[in-house]
């Protein structure tokens, strides 16, 4: 079948694109997720101006499509004398997007810790910092793990948007092969399967983790 022939002939270049996508996703997540924590804490701050500022930033970060952030970072920053390569620009853009969504997820996790426990910690004379460190964060982050896994899968999918800033990731590779050979359907099909080969097992894993954590509660 010619579809299989196409696949056998062009899978190496798609694979190299996939590798770029994976690296981009991993780096964006490693930078973006920790970045989300201070924003999550700020969203629950007692000081009203800090809280409102943080929430506004997070909502804006979540409201802007990742695609727009990519364009702004790659095409826009050179105007202020900051020119980044497409990989670095993509990393910055996706890391910012990750941070915004992580912040919301972590906030939910931190809020899920029963208020009574926080009160008990305060009644024991524990400081706000210690309460956060020993009581709220350990439990809150644990609760946030399944949705964070879901977010990771979405960010990996979002790496396909870097096609628009000339990053040679999986979709770009598939498209160049397709435009050279006009075998769009089979090549794009293979690219799709490569994406699925990562996202589908990842979401199964995420579901298992979620079930296991629900059991322990």
């Amino acid at each position: 079948m010619s579809v299989i022939d196409d696949w056998l002939q062009y899978y190496p270049s798609l694979l190299s694109g996939l590798w770029v996508s994976v690296r981009l996703a991993a780096l964006s997540l490693c930078i973006g997720m920790p970045l989300g924590l201070p924003f999550a804490l700020g969203s629950g701050a007692t000081s009203r101006p800090l809280r409102l500022c943080t929430i506004a930033l997070v909502e804006i970060g979540r409201g802007i499509p990742a695609l727009v952030v990519l364009q702004l970072v790659y095409f826009g920053l050179p105007s202020v004398h900051l020119t980044l390569s497409s990989f670095v620009a993509a990393t910055v853009a996706l890391a910012l997007t990750t941070a915004a969504y992580t912040s919301e997820i972590l906030r939910g996790g931190l809020q899920a810790v029963p208020a009574g426990e926080v009160e008990a910690a305060h009644a024991l004379g524990m400081s706000q910092r210690d309460t956060l460190r020993f009581i709220v964060l350990p439990q809150g982050i644990r609760v946030a793990i399944p949705p964070l896994m879901g977010l990771s899968i979405l960010i990996f999918q979002a790496t396909s948007l870097a096609y628009t800033i000339a990053l040679p990731e999986l979709l770009s590779q598939a498209y160049s092969v397709g435009s050279a050979t006009f075998r769009y359907m089979s090549i794009l099909g293979l690219a799709g399967l490569f994406y699925a080969a990562i996202t589908i097992p990842a979401s199964w894993l995420s579901e298992r983790v979620e079930k296991r954590m629900a059991r322990h509660l």
Binding site: A120, A123, G125, S127, F134, P138, Q139, R142
Partner: peptide
């Protein structure tokens, strides 16, 4: 505040132990 709370131990209706 911490000193005051150290002097008063409190026991709650819902226990509020730390499950983790």
């Amino acid at each position: 505040l911490a000193e005051l709370r150290r002097n008063a131990g409190m026991v709650f209706q819902s226990f509020n132990l730390f499950p983790h």
